[in-house]
Design a protein around this nucleic acid. Structure first.
Lengths: 357, 357
DNA sequence: CGCACCCGGGAGAGCGCTCTCTGGGTGTGT
DNA sequence: ACACACCCAGAGAGCGCTCTCCCGGGTGCG
């Protein structure tokens, strides 16, 4: 049992001796390669059990040149390059890497972990939020500790996709890269999400429909808005008042205030994510506007924030876990055949109707 | 640059040849071991640069018997053992591993990642939410893919701590194990947290003080309540009405309703976590009780939920990131000297005064 | 009955690295 | 001046595994 405590756990050699066969045969049994006589297989398996053998990962990796691990890289712009302003100054913790505390990222890791463990694999978690950290990530991957990278990039100006592709590291992105890079990715049909929200608000009979958008230098924000606008135009609403937020609760509150100021007649609202929608709800309540009767509100993401709103938030669901799982599948495929062309998989959003609209 | 694409990246041998020295010398330079003549160091470093050499992790691990990696294991009770009821049925996703989406866990990983990367290390993320998954975790660790485990256990009946300790895997827990196990851990002084809340409510002149507790089979819940009660008793409040919740928003709403039913006179409230406090706030607003004027509310954790409440939640801050960092430090220490006795480090909570009390 | 073939198993060569051991040159003590 | 300690670089032995090569015996076909 506590062979590990003794110096060195049993090796292939030990098992082979115990079973009275050669190392190669034991290896074959373990890896299920080539036909090995069933009776011998049995003997070997028994020997493995009695010795308590576990294969040494490092030794295997050394010869197979495979780590059987992937990296999950969360990447944001670093302090050392003039990235977007704003959401850097979070709720007072001295810790960088609040990225990780974002439940959206939590959903991604849940999807990744869940997919990987069916293959007995587990991701290495890395944060690339500065030039230094990015260097570390690249070097880490080049050291072969992981066979490839799942890249979740927050900021548009993230150089990591290019860098990794250039370094020959297999790599799949969550969300389409802003600049064209020959790399696979998964994404959501954000426009369709915007359309879903528009259709829903129109079906609820709303006449004065507005939107709180995400930061407009983010593709997803642009697309959600574009889809929303197009659909409204088709429904005969050519003009949509907008306020830009930056995906935080506070920005949602600010945007809502501004919107009420400029367009007090608003009775339908599409907010580009749930957290901002929660902020909007706060302001609407303060101003005595009933939701959904006076103003119907549709969010985006179907995050836990949507459920903690009162009234519970009607929102456009993004199947983040499924997307993350698919992203992982694509990466493993890519690791197996490095030559293949990049692919993309686009997921469809769905409207989740709750109380707010 | 794209040496990687060509068959095989450069090895120590290549660098040695380029520099005109032996493999051993290059190794020494890389690992900064023993005195190597500065001029030779220089030559070697130049050779490393021109060849684009990166050390092969697997080869190094094989001989050092160190993975230079730790596992971050999130462990909950599995479906296959009669664990606690309740919070299994989350917001409709078919995915297990919602544990990961919990922002509390996000804060832990942020602390871990942030600490590790200063040592150029990164955690492997594992989920142990079933007997099978737990087996996988143990076997993975025994394979030596990680030198030790950071264990975040959700449920009281989690057998993993014992299992890992028995398997001789270095291991540090987040929170004291319910059953005594010879293992290091970090924890919060939960009683002090309860006391802080009590003192604050009393200082605010509240007379009818109640509490919504966490599940009482969790040590942390018990301790928070005990600390709260003791402090109130010292302030001359011998009796504290309580309702038990299970840390979810909905349970907070239920508990608040029940409390108002039984004790409509309540004017001060301590809630064992922020999410339940958010639920309580919803109910108070519905019932027309102003916060903090009619009822003062103090939460626990200082999570992002505290900031998304309106009014913003006064709460007891748990320095999760620092605790996670310390947990990691303890583990690395332990990996370095496996013989050492288990230690524990207890952190002090702090009251964060916002609007709700 | 002989030969080509196939299939199950063993032997052995590394994968890239670290680290001990060794040897030669230099510095220090008497 | 000599002996001894010391320090730096090289040689070489593995770490535990996979995988190719090879060999012996059984099978099918001519």
């Amino acid at each position: 049992m506590s062979d590990r405590a003794a110096k060195g756990s049993p090796t292939l050699e030990d098992v082979a001796r115990e079973a009275g066969v050669s190392r190669a045969t034991v290896s074959r049994v373990i890896n299920g390669i080539r036909n090995v006589d069933p009776s011998i297989q049995d003997v070997v398996r028994r020997a493995i059990a009695t010795t308590g053998y576990v294969p040494n990962r490092a030794a295997r990796s050394l010869v197979t040149r495979r780590a059987d691990t992937v990296a999950l890289v969360v990447s944001g712009a670093g302090a050392d390059e003039g990235g977007e302003a704003g959401d850097e100054d979070g709720p007072g913790t001295p810790f960088r890497g609040q990225l990780l505390a974002d439940p959206f990222f939590g959903r991604i890791s849940a999807g990744v972990v869940d997919f990987l463990r069916r293959r007995a694999m587990h991701p290495v978690l890395m944060l690339a939020d500065s030039t230094d950290a990015r260097k570390q990530v690249v070097s880490y991957l080049r050291q072969g500790h992981a066979d490839g990278a799942l890249l979740v990039s927050i900021h548009a100006d993230d150089p990591l996709p290019e860098t990794l592709v250039a370094a020959g590291v297999p790599c799949v992105l969550f969300a389409r890269p802003p600049r064209p890079v020959p790399v696979s990715y998964v994404d959501l049909a954000h426009r369709d999400g915007g359309r879903l929200a528009a259709d829903h608000l129109v079906a609820r009979g709303r006449q004065h429909i507005a939107s709180i958008t995400g930061p407009l230098d983010v593709l997803a924000s642009q697309d959600r808005l574009a889809g929303f606008r197009d659909a409204l135009a088709r429904h005969g609403h050519p003009y949509v008042p907008c306020e830009e937020g930056n995906f935080t609760l506070e920005s949602g509150e600010r945007a809502m205030s501004a919107l009420l100021e400029r367009h007090p007649e608003v009775d339908g609202l599409f907010v580009a994510n749930d957290l901002m929608a929660q902020g909007a709800l706060h302001v609407l309540r303060e101003r005595g506007r009933a939701v959904p009767d006076d103003v119907a509100v549709v969010g985006f993401d179907d995050s836990s924030a949507a459920l903690s709103c009162r009234p519970a938030l009607t929102t456009v669901r993004q199947p983040v876990e499924e997307m993350a799982a698919e992203m992982t599948r694509l990466l493993l495929e890519r690791v197996d055949q490095p030559g293949a062309r990049p692919t993309s998989v686009i997921f469809e959003p769905a409207l989740v109707a709750r109380q707010s609209a």
